[in-house]
Amino acid sequence: MDKKEEMSKKYWEEKEFSYFSHRKCEFFPCHKNADENNFNCLFCYCPLYTLGNKCGGNFRYLDNGIKDCSDCLYPHFKENYGKVVERFGEIVKSMNEKK
């Protein structure tokens, strides 16, 4: 990797803490049509769920009002780690509003 590439990388890219694939999990991969070679289990339970219809993922609401994220792979792509983490402020605000 040259200096220009290195400088353009985010602090979390290619770091171990930003990607974890738990291939021994009984449910791996837990989403249909998932790419097993690019499936980040770090956000097994998506922190964006609490943002409701503003999460940015591929979800739907069931007839009973439950949010169904089974077709969403957004938090599981390695390259989306930073995008999820950057939204933690919104998550905290959303949680505080629900108190």
Score class of each variant (00 low, 15 high):
Asp2Gln: 03
Lys3Trp: 14
Lys4Leu: 12
Glu5Cys: 03
Glu5Phe: 15
Met7Cys: 00
Ser8Ala: 12
Lys9Tyr: 12
Trp12Ala: 10
Glu14Phe: 15
Glu14Cys: 11
Glu16Lys: 06
Phe17Trp: 09
Tyr19Phe: 11
Tyr19Ser: 06
Phe20Lys: 14
His22Ile: 05
Lys24Thr: 15
Cys25Trp: 13
Phe27Pro: 01
Phe27Asn: 08
Phe28Met: 04
Pro29Lys: 00
Pro29Ser: 02
His31Ser: 08
His31Tyr: 04
Asn33Lys: 09
Ala34Arg: 01
Asp35Cys: 00
Glu36Cys: 02
Phe39Gly: 03
Cys41Lys: 11
Cys41Glu: 10
Cys44Met: 08
Tyr45Phe: 14
Tyr45Ile: 09
Tyr45Ser: 09
Cys46Ala: 06
Pro47Arg: 02
Leu48Ser: 05
Tyr49Glu: 13
Tyr49Phe: 13
Leu51Gly: 09
Leu51Glu: 08
Asn53Glu: 12
Cys55Ile: 00
Cys55Lys: 02
Gly56Val: 00
Gly56Met: 02
Gly57Leu: 03
Gly57Ser: 06
Tyr61Arg: 10
Leu62Thr: 15
Leu62Lys: 15
Asp63Met: 01
Asn64Arg: 06
Gly65Val: 06
Ser70Gln: 02
Asp71Val: 01
Cys72Arg: 14
Leu73Pro: 05
Pro75Val: 01
Pro75Met: 06
Phe77Thr: 03
Glu79Thr: 14
Gly82Gln: 14
Gly82Phe: 09
Lys83Gln: 00
Arg87Met: 10
Arg87Ala: 11
Phe88Gly: 11
Gly89Phe: 12
Val92Glu: 10
Val92Pro: 08
Asn96Val: 05
